[in-house]
């Protein structure tokens, strides 16, 4: 087994996951998407981050 096989399996796994997610998640809507840059948009950042404190119980 070579590194190429590992890359192929990794990318294949990614592709399968993305396909399943595409089928099961809400459809994409580019017209409701945020602007390219958060900086200067006037909108609060809403993305998730691992450093965000947890919600209270």
């Amino acid at each position: 087994m070579t590194r190429g096989h590992v890359v192929f399996i990794t990318l294949l796994g990614m592709a399968v996951f993305l396909g399943l997610d595409f089928a099961n998640s809400e459809p994409l809507n580019p017209y409701g998407a945020p602007p390219l840059m958060s900086l200067g948009s006037g909108l609060a950042a809403t993305g998730a981050h691992c450093a965000a404190p947890p919600p209270s119980k």
Binding site: S38, A45, G47, H49
Partner: peptide, 11 residues
């Protein structure tokens, strides 16, 4: 600047 939050991985 783009995301409005710093680079992260594990979430």
């Amino acid at each position: 600047a783009v995301a409005g939050q710093p680079w992260g991985v594990v979430y």
